[in-house]
């Protein structure tokens, strides 16, 4: 995939406009984070990108003709409780029997190869998220959509899952779109942050971050970067970002 240009003139539910004049480009190896308050239409945007919602005024323009292969990690893992971990991953694959080594590789990658025959109900919340992530990677997507995948996880589990997302992204050259209301999370992971206004959603600010994070040797300091970001753009970002419960304050507020 060479990229996709997202142009949404309007998306409404009845009278209520949820997204208005929203345009951005997804490059093939981009890691984009969409940050915005609750009800900003972030999940609606992901539904449009995934093809779940096709009733909108606008277009998704795939550079090489497309449509590209898009996969989705939903807010909740949405695993089939009656299928084993392995079967959940195989369910979405085109030909799982011919590609069992790929399933094995993914299971090892998410450290669940020993639980391949377990049912989702026998796994912890963090493990279920890892299965959902493996399932999303199973189709070797051009674009991986992540809808607040770390919410409702305890801090260490969320941190290890963030690490896993980065590792998979580095290994498998997919573009990633991460929706979050947690600015710290966005800063830690993404190359580019798109700030959405409270509905109807449109991009009110874009921030390109230091791409050196692609090199795993370079350790980022998300706390400092978030602080800097809020200091630079206090008017724009004030009221949008919720920062991991640590109450970062913009320059105006100090």
């Amino acid at each position: 995939m060479n990229g996709c240009r997202v142009k949404i003139k309007d998306k409404s539910f009845g009278e209520m406009s949820v997204i208005h004049d929203l345009e951005f480009e997804i490059l093939s190896d981009a890691f984009i984070s969409l940050v915005g308050p609750s009800g900003a239409g972030k999940s609606t945007l992901l539904n449009i990108l995934s093809g779940l919602d096709t009733e909108f005024d606008g277009s998704l323009e795939w550079v090489d003709g497309g449509p590209g292969c898009v996969s989705y990690v939903f807010q909740d893992p949405r695993l089939m409780p009656w299928l084993s971990v392995r079967e959940n991953i195989e369910l979405v694959m085109k030909d799982a029997h011919d590609d069992s080594s790929w399933v094995d590789h993914l299971l090892r990658r998410v450290e669940l190869h020993e639980r391949a025959d377990a049912f989702p109900g026998q796994l912890s919340g963090g493990m279920q998220r890892r299965v959902a992530l493996a399932r999303a990677m199973a189709i070797k997507p051009d674009i991986l959509l992540l809808d607040e995948p770390f919410s409702s996880l305890d801090a260490p589990t969320a941190a290890s899952l963030r690490e896993l997302v980065l590792d998979l992204w580095r290994d498998h050259s997919s573009a990633v779109i991460l929706v979050t209301h947690n600015l710290n999370e966005a800063v830690e992971l993404a190359d580019q942050i798109l700030f959405l206004s409270k509905g109807p959603a449109s991009i009110i600010h874009q921030e390109a971050l230091n791409p050196s994070r692609i090199d795993p040797e370079v350790v980022r300091d998300p706390d400092r970067m978030t602080r800097d970001l809020l200091n630079c753009q206090p008017e724009i970002l004030s009221g949008i970002a919720v920062v991991d419960g640590r109450n970062y304050k913009s320059a105006n507020e100090r």
């Binding site: 093809g51 779940l52 996969s71 989705y72 949405r78 089939m80 369910l91 979405v92 399932r135 189709i139």
Partner: peptide
Amino acid sequence: LLQVGEVF
């Protein structure tokens, strides 16, 4: 769960 089938 149906949406999972649809997306993939």
